[in-house]
Simulated assay, not measured.
Amino acid sequence: MQSTWLVLVSLALGLGVGAGFMALLQLAEHHGRRAAEVVNPVVPDGIDQVLDALESAGIVLDPSNNVIKTSAAALTMGLVFSQQLVHAELIELARQVRRSGEAISQDLVLSRGPFNDASLRYRVRLARLGTRYVLILAEDRTESFRLDEVRRDFVANISHELKTPIASVSLLAEALDQAADEPVQVRRFANRLTTESARLGRLTQEIIELSRLQAQDALATPEYLDVDALVAAAVDQSRVVAEAQNITLAVGKKSGARVYGDEKLLVVAVHNLVSNAVNYSQPGSRVGVGVRRQKNVVEITVTDQGIGIAEADIDRVFERFFRVDQARSRHTGGTGLGLSIVKHVVQNHGGDIRVWSQPGSGSTFTIRLPEAATPAAITPTANAATGDIQ
């Protein structure tokens, strides 16, 4: 009887020890899973797909600010490097989100990666993702800010440029009224009024033309053009002004070059260069215009012996409303848009424009356009139904 009792006690002790051991195993397994989750955090389902679909940058941070998920855009924008956030500003915002639990939106100017000093403008939004993670979304708005600045500058410049001729017209009209009984003064004011109104008309037309050029990237219906003919037409438009100032217009020999493009626009571009050359040249000097073909490129060159351009200004001459010599430009009625129009015309024809200049020695502007191949001969084809030639 006693032995049976001892067996039962031993069995009970064994079961108790076994249950305790199993409980220890389960507890160890639970702690192991928790440790694995800390070491290898798992983000909520669907985040990978969301990040892949984003055009903007997307980043998921763990509690230690390690980057555990990122979109391709975040890498190319330089926000993430070696699985870490590059910018301390983003880390601080993430800490604020964890403390407050509230989402944050902010505009930031950040460098493009740890090795690039170029700055980009971002619109960033940070929010909690579950209980442990922070999601960062960043949109590159650099181009948007640049376009806003360009628009503001353009409107400010237009306002400034229009103010002078409009004010002049108003004052001259008032002077005409007061000088109604003085024929000489009336003619004088009327001539000035005609000059200012013509200047205002040119400025308005060039603003419209420039806006139209900037709105299109390529030509809709290019034509097969004779470059020598369009250059001759452009030069002829400046002959009267050049002769009045005793400036010689010298045109080089015919090149036989052909390009595809819009004849009217190319004539305007070349005329603007010739007109500038004449306006910035001294009486008795020479303006040369030449065309040459070189390695499938047609070059139209306008050279003057004028005042030249300072090295600091060469990169700015194609800016809207920029003038090398403000006083001379005002005197000649220049709008400051001519070279900007040239640049956009040339770019819309798939070409580029280059400038060389030296103060006191003159300037050379060169338009470079793709040379057009001779159009293939059109071969007549027979209509299968009627046998007619088309």
Rank of each mutant, 00 (worst) to 15 (best):
Y280I: 00
Y280W: 02
Q282V: 13
S285R: 11
R286Y: 11
V287Q: 00
V289D: 02
V289W: 01
R292F: 10
R293N: 08
Q294P: 03
Q294T: 12
Q294D: 07
K295S: 12
K295T: 09
K295W: 08
V297Y: 12
V297E: 14
E299N: 15
E299K: 14
I300P: 03
I300S: 03
T301G: 04
V302F: 08
T303P: 09
T303G: 07
D304S: 01
Q305F: 08
Q305W: 06
Q305C: 09
Q305A: 09
G308I: 01
G308R: 01
E311P: 01
E311Q: 13
E311F: 04
A312V: 03
A312G: 03
D313V: 00
D313F: 01
I314W: 05
I314H: 06
R316S: 10
V317T: 07
R320D: 10
R320C: 11
F321D: 08
F321G: 10
F322T: 03
V324P: 09
D325P: 03
A327P: 08
R328V: 06
R328E: 10
S329T: 07
H331F: 12
T332V: 12
G333F: 08
G333K: 08
G333H: 12
G333W: 10
G334K: 01
G334H: 02
T335F: 04
T335C: 02
G336W: 05
G336I: 04
G336F: 05
G336P: 06
L337W: 05
L337Y: 08
G338R: 12
G338M: 09
G338L: 09
G338F: 11
L339Y: 15
L339M: 15
K343W: 05
H344N: 15
V345D: 10
V345C: 11
Q347K: 13
N348C: 00
N348S: 02
N348E: 05
G350C: 04
G351K: 10
D352M: 09
D352T: 10
D352I: 04
I353L: 04
I353P: 02
I353G: 02
R354M: 15
R354T: 15
V355F: 05
V355L: 15
V355T: 10
W356P: 03
W356H: 14
S357Q: 04
S357M: 04
S357D: 06
P359T: 09
P359N: 09
S361P: 06
G362K: 12
G362N: 12
G362W: 10
S363V: 11
T364F: 02
F365K: 08
I367G: 03
R368P: 13
P370A: 01
E371M: 02
A373T: 06
T374K: 09
T374H: 14
A376I: 11
A377Q: 11
A377M: 07
I378F: 11
I378M: 12
I378R: 13
I378C: 11
T379R: 12
T381C: 04
A382D: 13
A382G: 12
N383Y: 01
N383H: 06
N383S: 02
T386C: 03
T386P: 02
T386M: 05
G387P: 15
D388S: 10
D388T: 03
D388V: 03
D388M: 05
I389N: 07
